[in-house]
């Protein structure tokens, strides 16, 4: 059976259109593979780099309960990174390679993690807004066309559901607390609101890759659709506990949705290009951990080779 590229592409698109998932060994267009590798590794790196801003507060978590929850949550991020790396590896790229691309600056991660966490309420803001934004995106991605990616997303969504709640709980507690706690909470919202909206990516009109990703159902909904969904559910949540989003132009419309002010895309592109407050710090941290772990990984490889040899001799 020999098929021309055109025929293969046609069959491929038919499968996509009929909601049949693509599996690792199936034929797929090169660009589909490349697009997935880029998006999935970026997603995996985001989970892993995302451990750092929250990790910054683990040692200062103010109660045993808060410490356990935060630690469990960061651990989940590591787990999600693993699910995504494994899913991405089915496309024929090793995790070592993904890490190398990250260190060389060839692979990106979500810009939100290049902002610092400055007070305890930031743990609330991250859970509520950053995970909240991520969940909107990830729920949509559970239906992505690539099987391993969709399966990872289902698992991740199941686990993530507690993240947003724990974040909102922190914010609600602080808003019900002392004046200083309320100030911390509002300050955290002020700093994380706009970067959270940027997490959905550029406007549809400026997003070069969007149309192909949508045609292949890698992405299921556009950046602006998802962003709007997030805004409409988040602003009432803020108001409910007495917080105010830092957008003087945010107005409730008759249909229940919100009209909002415009996003500072210069800031967005600047941070994407590496000029955010913590870009260097985050990447250096990851490189350092990786470098410091090298001798441990080498020891594991050496030990397992010795074990194999011993077993061979025993036989």
């Amino acid at each position: 059976m020999s098929n021309t590229i055109e025929e293969l592409e046609k069959q491929f698109q038919e499968k996509i259109d009929n909601e049949i998932k693509i599996e690792p060994k199936d034929w797929m267009p090169d660009d589909y593979r490349k697009n997935l590798i880029r998006q999935m590794s970026q997603h995996a790196h985001s989970e892993v780099i995302g451990m750092q801003p929250e990790g910054n507060w683990i040692t200062r978590a103010p109660s045993l309960r808060a410490k356990k929850i935060l630690l469990a949550k960061i651990q989940d991020e590591a787990g999600h990174g693993l699910y995504l790396y494994s899913a991405a590896e089915t496309l024929g790229v090793s995790r070592d390679q993904f890490i190398q691309w990250l260190h060389e600056g060839k692979a990106k991660y979500s810009s939100i993690f290049n902002y610092p966490t400055l007070n305890w309420a930031d743990m609330g803001a991250i859970g509520w807004l950053v995970d909240g934004a991520a969940i909107v995106n990830q729920v949509s991605l559970q239906k992505t066309s690539y099987g391993p990616y969709a399966r990872a997303m289902v698992r991740i969504c199941k686990e993530e559901s507690f993240h947003q709640r724990q974040g909102y709980e922190i914010m609600a507690k602080m808003m019900a607390g002392t004046k200083e706690q309320q100030q911390m909470a509002q300050d955290a919202l002020n700093r994380f609101w706009w970067p959270s909206l940027m997490m959905f990516g550029p406007h549809d009109s400026d997003s070069s890759r969007s149309s192909l990703a949508l045609k292949w159902k890698i992405k299921r909904e556009t950046n602006d659709t998802l962003r709007k969904r997030f805004i409409d559910k988040t602003i009432p949540q803020a108001e409910f506990i007495g917080l105010k989003v830092p957008d003087p132009d945010a107005v409730l419309q008759p249909d229940g949705s919100y009209k909002t002010g415009s996003i500072d895309w210069d800031e967005f592109w600047n941070v994407v290009k590496g000029n955010g407050p913590c870009n260097k710090q985050r990447l250096d941290h990851h490189k350092r951990a990786h470098d410091h772990g090298r001798w441990v990984r080498e020891a594991c490889i050496a030990f397992s080779e010795k074990q194999d040899k011993r077993k061979a001799i025993a036989k």
Partner: peptide, 11 residues
């Protein structure tokens, strides 16, 4: 896969 430093085989 680099022989002396890698993430180990997949399981």
């Amino acid at each position: 896969m680099n022989n002396s430093d890698n993430q180990g085989p997949l399981w």
